[in-house]
Design a protein around this nucleic acid. Structure first.
Lengths: 199, 199
DNA sequence: CGTCGATATGGCACAACGTGCCAGATCGGC
DNA sequence: GCCGATCTGGCACGTTGTGCCATATCGACG
């Protein structure tokens, strides 16, 4: 996966960011995002309010690092596929390689709680959709690198479809109580979206 | 389209809401969302700050009524199709009936300016995606009414695909300078998404 | 026409948000 | 051990969004 890629300082920073994210996730799932002050997150994380806003652009954004974990790994895996490969199979393979990995299993429970809370909380839902939008935007150049001579609009649509596949499957997975990883569902959604839904 | 459906009071309310939205759109495209205070919007609209927040949940949300116009008309048209119809053709027909209508032509320039500004403005982009998310959520029961015995996950995916078709086509249309209505592009996107993109 | 209940509006106060600024602390390299 | 760079905390400040109440406007009814 990712070895000793970043500098020590940088890794410490992402570590504290994840720590803050988990604390914020706990408070958000307990009292909702509106019922949680930024100061309480900072206090629970053991940092000052000013420092909290250096790690998070917005109070709600504090949980974003948790939500991006899976997508980041997935895109990194996809970026490693050689140019000229067929896109949809490459996307599926990247899903298998990352969405069921043991790395994110530790954070999947957080994700489930957050997505469930996001169903009733507009602010949390906004973060979830912002994360997906960012993922879709960062996905586009990766797809273009794999298939350099494809039509750009088609690539945009494929990026939207793949992002939707992951999003819808994760939302569906969060709604259920099963322990099964959401990989199979994601692959099924992707195939449905890219091979026709029928009327 | 919509006759004398709502009460007079209600129509006055939506009218002022649109008025505020156009004023806010002008200010946002000129100085950006971050560079516009809620008070300046209220002043330009001739209302007090307190009243402004009665019409708009958030400063950025002030432009939402403009962005929802097309989607609302489209969903209303789609909701009128009889149960048992084939979904994708029904969606296409609703696109033809609404996205090129003269009603929204008046507000399309606003839309273009807003979408262009949203490319560089995270807050505006968040509103745009919130509007699409709402549209997708409200689309689901309509689809379920047309095809009562369809699998729900398939319906969710189709709702996501149709929303993406409109979203991506509008974003693409906003990026170009052509006067052509975005209908044809939307239909093409929908067909690409529902009939397979190829690898 | 006049009265009354309901709704819309404005003004005020207030907690919370997010940022600029500066001072002290902490870390890394020579 | 020293020094520059980065991280952190505290403070002040403008802005956001809301609760509360007083006033004004609107619609219905006698």
């Amino acid at each position: 996966m990712s070895g000793t890629s970043a500098s020590l300082t940088e890794r410490r920073r992402t570590a504290t960011q994840l720590e803050i994210a988990r604390v914020a996730a706990q408070l958000f799932t307990d009292h909702g995002a509106a019922g949680t002050t930024a100061e309480s997150i900072a206090e629970a994380a053991g940092i000052s309010l000013r420092t909290f806003y250096r790690y998070s652009r917005t109070k709600e954004d504090a949980i974003a690092p948790l939500l991006t974990l899976g997508g980041d790994a997935w895109r990194a895996e996809l970026a490693a596929t050689p140019p000229g490969s067929r896109l949809v199979p490459a996307i599926e393979q990247a899903m298998h390689a990352t969405l069921s990995a043991a790395d994110i299993d530790h954070d999947l429970p957080w994700m489930r709680g957050l997505l469930r809370a996001a169903e009733d909380d507009d602010d949390l839902a906004a973060v979830w959709y912002r994360v997906n939008r960012d993922s879709e935007a960062r996905l586009l150049p990766i797809l273009a690198q794999i298939a350099p001579d494809a039509d750009e609009l088609d690539l945009r649509l494929l990026a939207a479809a793949a992002t939707d596949a992951i999003r819808v499957s994760l939302e569906d997975w969060a709604r259920r109580d099963e322990a099964q990883a959401p990989v199979d569902l994601a692959v099924r959604c992707l195939r449905s979206l890219t091979r026709g839904l029928g009327g």
